[in-house]
């Protein structure tokens, strides 16, 4: 089926944009979408952890989570990306080399440390964007969890559920409805933030538009195409989010 799609797209787009539209640009778009979805997964995980930590009774967890969300939200994403991509690479390898040296001086029976690790642009991109939007998601989820009526949680406790059961069976499902608008906003911003990975050299659709625009001497055309493709991603997301919102608001009265 995929092969069929490929043939169809190839014939359908032949000659469009000097033949650069498919596979060149559209495959870049696929990479953008993959990157965005993987980052979203990481961001949601970090967001839930962050929200729980901010609402926890332990002052240490609260402090760490507050520091994380404040720091990340106070620094531009592109600066964070450069810190993680260039700095992270250095840090990981420095740590590996030091551990290896330590293992040699102590002549440990097992190998510690690691050889030179190359962090790919894709990994760095997913980590950075996930880490950034994890902070925003944490804020959204925190608000959503706080919006769950206290009585529902008390009722759970009254039934003899453990705190974990109360969280997974009551608080989490009931907070989804309150989280969707903020989640949707964060996702739309996240999708646009993926464009930044082109600056660290990942060949997403923005990067490819630059190449195609350079070789055809039509940079405006190609960047405009990419802009429209981003609008397409936004529009499709809007439809899905509206559907989700309706689905999770079943049973809520609306004026």
């Amino acid at each position: 089926m995929l092969a069929d799609l490929h043939t169809w797209l190839t014939t359908a787009s032949a000659g469009l944009l000097d033949g650069y539209l498919y596979p060149f640009i559209l495959q870049g778009m696929l990479l953008t979408i993959e990157l965005a979805l993987l980052s979203l997964l990481l961001a949601v995980g970090l967001g839930i952890l962050g929200a729980l930590a901010r609402l926890s009774r332990s002052p240490i967890a609260r402090g760490i989570a507050t520091g994380y969300t404040t720091l990340i939200r106070g620094v531009p994403d592109i600066v964070l990306m450069f810190i993680f991509f260039y700095g992270g690479q250095l840090l990981v390898n420095d740590l590996g080399a030091r551990l290896a040296a330590l293992g040699e001086t102590w002549s440990l029976p097992f190998a510690v440390g690691w050889d030179y690790v190359e962090i790919s642009e894709f990994t760095a991109g997913v980590f950075t964007i996930g880490l950034i939007f994890g902070a925003y998601m944490a804020e959204t989820f925190r608000g959503a969890i706080l919006a769950v009526p206290r009585g529902e949680i008390e009722a759970g406790h009254a039934y003899g559920m453990t705190p974990f059961q109360v969280f997974t069976r009551i608080t989490l499902p009931a907070s989804v409805r309150h989280a969707i608008p903020g989640f949707g906003n964060n996702w739309l911003v996240l999708a646009k933030a993926t464009a930044l990975v082109s600056v660290i050299g990942l060949d997403d659709m923005v990067f490819r538009a630059g190449q195609a625009g350079g070789s055809t001497r039509q940079p405006f055309t190609f960047y405009l195409v990419v802009a429209v493709l981003y609008l397409l991603i936004t529009a499709v997301s809007d439809v899905v989010l509206r559907h989700l919102d309706r689905r999770y608001s079943v049973g809520v009265r609306r004026a």
């Binding site: 923005v206 538009a209 630059g210 940079p219 960047y223 802009a227 981003y230 609008l231």
Partner: peptide, 9 residues
């Protein structure tokens, strides 16, 4: 709806 980076480019 589009990234600022793309607008700038």
């Amino acid at each position: 709806g589009t990234p600022l980076l793309v607008q700038m480019f």
